[in-house]
Write a protein that binds this DNA or RNA. Structure first.
Length: 450
DNA sequence: TTAGGGTTAG
């Protein structure tokens, strides 16, 4: 970009304000807001023959907002736009600020800015509406978002709702498992004369599948096709995962076939999903076949593939086979993950092999695989079942040293164990230390977030 | 120049 800019300055092609705005936008989108501001300063100097316009300035406002400098953006709007540059903030300026406040969870400030727009006679548009609706939905307030939409569409003449409004609301209602409302809004959108676009269809397919409504999801997929769109690999993966969860393996495999027929290459995610489904069905012959097909297709097993197999074999009580899979990862050159070790440690603990669980925990350290609270919980459960408190105390100390905070599972395990063996004091100390460090961490996080 | 979505292992 710098080269293009330099060559323009020496050639007969004269950059104008649009050129500069494009560069400022490029800098902002590349996360170089400081450079964008310097360029703006250059444009604002007395000897400059190109002055920034409202688009240049809005670009900078949005750049500041999206890089987390919301207060700086507000200061820029209040102190520089009109007085320095002679450009009063317009609809886009306010929309950028409103979005920024919504994203940090400050919806009331977003409302206040809407009020300020009204006072200053700056018109709201469809983006203003969708930004607030999106902000409320993101905050888990789908009902409030819908209410806001209903209220404003009668008042804001330029903002009556469009495909973005509806897909945002539908996504939020699906997410909160209010399928009926999502369906109703989907149909309302069509009644209002907006055709669902691909995003809307994918949102519906995903949400309905997640809710276990496979029939509805499939009929939505048919509508998508009738409307001239195509399912992509991700959409097939979603449906395949849905059928696998319902233990309808036959239909999942049919979708794999359909995927290939329409010329889509199943990816590692497709295979992992079907492997997981076949493991859960206990069909390890299908697992082996599928692994073969996967490799024939040139699809390399990933760490998730190994994790799926390890979990599948553990769940089927074949821990030796699961350990063999772990060992085979060395040859494949794929580094085992925390999840894989956690799975094995959990099942080893459950099958009464706490010693081997501890061995794997030591191996994690050698291999620099980080342990997390799930690792410690699995170990502690295994130790509780074998009543090995000394080792558990050691682990509790390690948790503290590694600043790994106990969760409700840790607390559950220790509360039903330590008091019984007369170690209530140690439990209390552990909880107090954890609360203390957690509180300190909370303070630190708040400081670094500012 | 500003607004929306979806996949796999514990």
């Amino acid at each position: 970009m710098a080269q293009v800019y330099a060559s323009m300055q020496t050639s007969s092609v004269r950059p104008d304000v649009v050129t500069y705005s494009i560069i400022v936008n490029g800098l902002c989108k590349a996360g170089r807001v400081g450079d964008a501001l310097r360029m703006l300063d250059g444009m604002s100097r007395q000897d400059s023959d190109i002055r920034p316009d409202v688009v240049t300035l809005n670009t900078v406002v949005d750049g500041l907002c999206k890089s987390g400098q919301v207060q700086e953006a507000v200061a820029f709007v209040e102190q520089r736009m009109r007085s320095v540059h002679g450009c009063p903030p317009n609809t886009v300026t306010y929309n950028c600020l409103i979005d920024a406040f919504c994203r940090v969870g400050n919806v009331s400030m977003a409302y206040e800015l809407v009020g300020r727009m009204e006072n200053k006679g700056v018109a709201q548009n469809i983006v203003t509406l969708n930004t607030i609706v999106g902000g409320l939905c993101r905050a888990g307030r789908a009902g409030a978002a819908l209410e806001f939409f209903r209220e404003k569409r009668t008042v804001w003449t330029e903002a009556k709702g469009n495909a973005v409004t509806y897909s945002t609301l539908v996504g939020a209602f699906l997410h909160s498992n209010n399928i009926g409302m999502a369906m109703a809004l989907f149909h309302e959108m069509m009644t209002e004369g907006h055709s669902p676009d691909a995003i809307m269809y994918f949102t519906m397919i995903s949400g309905l599948t997640q809710a276990g409504r496979l029939e509805d999801a499939c009929s939505m997929a048919s509508s998508l096709k009738k409307a001239g769109f195509k399912l992509d690999a991700k959409a097939y993966n979603i449906l395949i995962a849905g059928f696998c969860r319902k233990k309808r393996l036959h239909e999942a495999y049919e979708l794999l076939q359909e995927m290939k027929e329409v010329g889509l290459q199943p990816d590692v995610c497709t295979y992992n999903t079907l492997l997981s489904g076949s493991c859960k069905a206990g069909d390890f012959t299908a697992v082996d076949e599928l692994l073969g097909k996967m490799i024939d297709d040139g699809c390399q097993p990933s760490v998730v593939t190994f994790g799926t197999l390890v979990h599948g074999y553990c769940k089927a009580g074949k821990i030796d086979e699961a350990l063999r899979i772990l060992r085979s990862m060395d040859e494949s050159g794929i580094h085992p993950s925390t999840v894989i070790y956690n799975t094995l440690i959990d099942f080893l603990g459950k099958s009464g092999d706490a010693d081997l669980a501890i061995q794997l925990f030591d191996e994690m350290k050698e291999k620099h695989v980080p342990a997390n609270v799930t690792t410690f919980n699995a170990l502690l459960k295994g130790l509780r079942d074998k009543n090995m408190p000394e080792k558990a105390f050691e682990l509790m100390d390690q948790m503290r040293e590694e600043r790994c905070f106990p969760d409700y599972v840790t607390v559950d395990v220790l509360m039903e164990w330590l008091p019984v063996i007369g170690e209530t004091e140690r439990l209390k100390r552990f909880m107090q230390q954890s609360e203390h460090t957690a509180a300190k961490r909370g303070v630190r996080d708040r400081i670094s977030a500012q």
